[in-house]
Design a protein around this nucleic acid. Structure first.
Lengths: 226, 226
DNA sequence: ACACCATTCAATTAATCAATTAAATAGTTT
DNA sequence: AAACTATTTAATTGATTAATTGAATGGTGT
C-alpha cells in the first residue's frame, strides 16, 4: 500500500475511532442512555448517576467532542441531549450486540432482577388487554418530566421518589404494574419492593418505555425529542 | 441510588463498554471493515493493512473478546469474519454518525480523492443505464475472492494487482468505470491513475460494493456471508 | 521432519485514564 | 453591584493501558 493511502486510512479510521473512544467508558454509556430518555441538565445527570457534577461535565465534554451529544443553555442550566436519531439508534445497536453476543449481560441482569423480584414480569402486550377491565393500574415510576414527555397510554405517574408519600392514596383492592425506562432501569423493581412490602399486589413490566417505543406502540404526551 | 443498584449498572454498562473499547482503535475498525467484505485469514488481513501478522492477531483477539468477530480454522489458515449481521449494521451505523457529525471525515475524503482524480465520479445508478449500449465496461478491481463472493451484475474482475499485467488486453475504444469496496477503498482511484496514464478513458464510481448492497441492488456471485 | 500459519510471550515505549479538588466563568437574582 | 447558581476548566492524583516488535511456541498438512 502506498504511503499516502496509509495516511488517508489512518485519518479516516482515526475519526471513526473517536466515536469508539467516546463509548469505551461505562459511565459515558450510562449518560448516553439517560439522555436517550430526553434532554437533561448536568445537575440532573449527576444526581441520577451519583457522580460528581465536575465528573459528569468532563464526560459530557468527551461526548461533545465526538459529537454524540449537543447542548442548549436555558437560564442557569445547560441541557444536554443526543445529537441525532442516528446516535439513539447507535445506542440500541450496541445493546443489541451486547445482548446477542455477551452472555454476561443477560446473566447479570437475570441475577439482579430475580433476587429482587422472583415473580415473572408482565409482558406489556398482555397487560393492555387486561387493563380494559379496570382492575389493573399501570404506574410509570420515572421522574415526572420523563412521564410528561411521553408515556404508555393509560399509565399514571408516580415518580419513585414520591412513592412513599403517595402510598395512602392507592387503593388496596387493585392490582398494580410498574414500568420504567427500560432493561437497565431499576426503578420498577424498586417500586415493587416498596409496594409489596406494604401489602399491595404489584408486578413489574418486562419492558420499559424504551422497548415500548421501539415496538412502535402509541405514546401519550408532549412530543418526544426523537 | 442504592449500593447494589450502582453495582448492577456498573456491571451492565461495563459490558457495553467492552464493545466501545474494541472499536476505540483505528486499526481495529479497519480490520472490521475489511471483514465486512467477507471472511479473511490473518495473513490476508496483515497484507491488506500493512500491519505485522502478530499485531493483526493481537487486535483480532481483542475483537474476539468483545465477540465482534468469529473464526474458523481451515487447514493451516484461520479465517475470521464478523460474528453477525448486527455487527455489520453496527459498523454502518458508526460510519453514518461519523459522516453526519464529524465534518473532518468528509473533508479528509474530499481532499484525498480530488487530488488523485479531479473528475467527478460516476453514480452507479446512472451508469447502469449507459451500460446497455455496450460502450462502457465496468471493472471490479477488488481481490478475486471478493469479486467471486459477490459483484455488480455485468462487471468484470481485474484485481488491482493484476491490472498492469492485463493492460494489453483492454480495448482502447471503450470507456471504463472502476469500482471497489466502498468509500474508504483506494483501489478504484488507483486503477484510474494507472489506466488514465496509459491513455484509457476511465472514471471511478462514486459508490462501492458496500453502498451498492446497502441500496438493496442485485448482486451476482456466490452467496454473501451476510 | 519440514514448511507454513497463527498465537503467545516478553519487553519497550508512550499515553491515556477516571476521578477529585479547587478555582474560574457565566448567567441570574437580589 | 453583590450574592448566588450551574457549569466548566485546570491541576493533580495514581494507576493503568496502549500499540508494536521480535522471538518462542503451537498446530496443521505434506
Amino acid at each position: 500500500m502506498s504511503q499516502d493511502a496509509r495516511e488517508f486510512k489512518d485519518a479516516i479510521y482515526g475519526q471513526y475511532a473517536r466515536i469508539g473512544k467516546a463509548i469505551s467508558s461505562p459511565r459515558r454509556i450510562e449518560l448516553l442512555e439517560l439522555l436517550s430518555q430526553g434532554a437533561k441538565s448536568v445537575e440532573m445527570l449527576a444526581k441520577e448517576t451519583g457522580m460528581s457534577v465536575a465528573n459528569v461535565s468532563q464526560h459530557l465534554q468527551t461526548l461533545l467532542e465526538a459529537r454524540l451529544v449537543q447542548y442548549r443553555k436555558k437560564g442557569n442550566f445547560v441541557y444536554y441531549r443526543l445529537s441525532s436519531k442516528t446516535v439513539s439508534d447507535f445506542l440500541v445497536n450496541i445493546e443489541q450486540i451486547a445482548e446477542e453476543r455477551l452472555p454476561d449481560v443477560n446473566q447479570i441482569r437475570k441475577e439482579f432482577f430475580e433476587q429482587r423480584d422472583p415473580l415473572e414480569p408482565v409482558l406489556l402486550q398482555e397487560l393492555l388487554q387486561q387493563m380494559d377491565t379496570g382492575d389493573i393500574v399501570l404506574i410509570d415510576v420515572r421522574p415526572k418530566e420523563e412521564y410528561e414527555e411521553g408515556h404508555i397510554p393509560g399509565a399514571i405517574s408516580i415518580p419513585i421518589e414520591e412513592l412513599e408519600k403517595e402510598l395512602e392514596q392507592l387503593p388496596k383492592d387493585k392490582e398494580f404494574v410498574a414500568y420504567c425506562r427500560g432493561k437497565q432501569c431499576v426503578y420498577a423493581v424498586h417500586a415493587v419492593d416498596v409496594l409489596r412490602s406494604k401489602g399491595y399486589q404489584i408486578r413489574r413490566a418486562e419492558e420499559g418505555i424504551r422497548e415500548w417505543s421501539y415496538m412502535d406502540q402509541p405514546i401519550e404526551g408532549t412530543d418526544r425529542l426523537h
